[in-house]
Design a binder for these strands. Structure first.
Lengths: 133, 133
DNA sequence: CGTAGTCGATTACGTGTGTAAACGATGGAG
DNA sequence: CTCCATCGTTTACACACGTAATCGACTACG
């Protein structure tokens, strides 16, 4: 009997931190790219140094969120998880934590907080129409 | 002239962590209550000890997210920030980070992920009707 | 062929977080 | 009056995160 209560396999979706997420966004935007390329896209806005990006990339590789592919002396990095999947679990987490897993209260909240533009409303109406078909 | 560039006043909304959030939920559900009461509500589900709850309460008090009121030898705790406010900033954070600040893509994502029940859809339709008035 | 630049890897370090034990005051039971 | 249960406070400690400098290897230029 495995006395290990936690599953030791590699299926745990290892949480991605805020800073790491910025790096992922760069990779989702275009990949595979080098660490320097990633820096070019995020170092400016976030005020980071290349070293920081390298660290974040390493951690993402360790978390198996990013894959490496050798290209001469350096590596090319690409996401190993789809943006849709990430966005999905994060959204789900929020809805679960704050709205009891129901999406309607979230929507109600956004509406009440004036977080919905005219365009949002129109788009959502269109989506609803589609859902009802 | 204040040479401090960061505003030193008490208006910073101090992030609330995941574990702390669980305590807040207990307080939002009913307050003011004692630390032991909080534990009664969260220690079981989360597998915490009373000591843990005490620590979290202290940290929340330090973050000015929770107020204390003496009651004999012990304290009664109550939330200092409204659940609506917390939910609002957290939702906003997510929408900003993942959906470029637009609510419609979030909605689209939930729809696509089958995260919407029939009831959700109906409720949202009703809300939309109201918004359009 | 040596040297400077660049790469990923290793190490660093302060702060936040999860989780809790130890401690000192104090109030109530006997 | 004494002792025990119970408070809140203090201290602890491992791990995650943000941010980066340093190091050893390697390559390309001169």
């Amino acid at each position: 009997m495995a006395e290990e209560p936690d599953t030791p396999n590699e299926n745990s979706p290892e949480r991605i931190s805020d800073a790491e997420h910025a790096v992922m966004e760069a990779l989702w935007e275009r990949s595979p790219i080098t660490a320097a390329d990633v820096c070019e896209r995020v170092c400016g806005p976030r005020g980071w140094s290349l070293a920081t990006v390298k660290t974040l990339l390493s951690r993402l590789v360790a978390k198996q969120a990013v894959a490496t592919e050798p290209d001469g002396k350096r590596f090319l990095y690409s996401p190993r998880i789809a943006r849709e999947a990430y966005v999905g679990t994060e959204s789900r987490r929020l809805v679960d934590r704050l709205f009891g897993g129901r999406a309607a209260p979230l929507f109600a909240h956004l509406a009440e907080a004036d977080a919905l533009t005219e365009d949002d409303i129109a788009e959502i109406e269109a989506l609803l129409k589609e859902l009802r078909s």
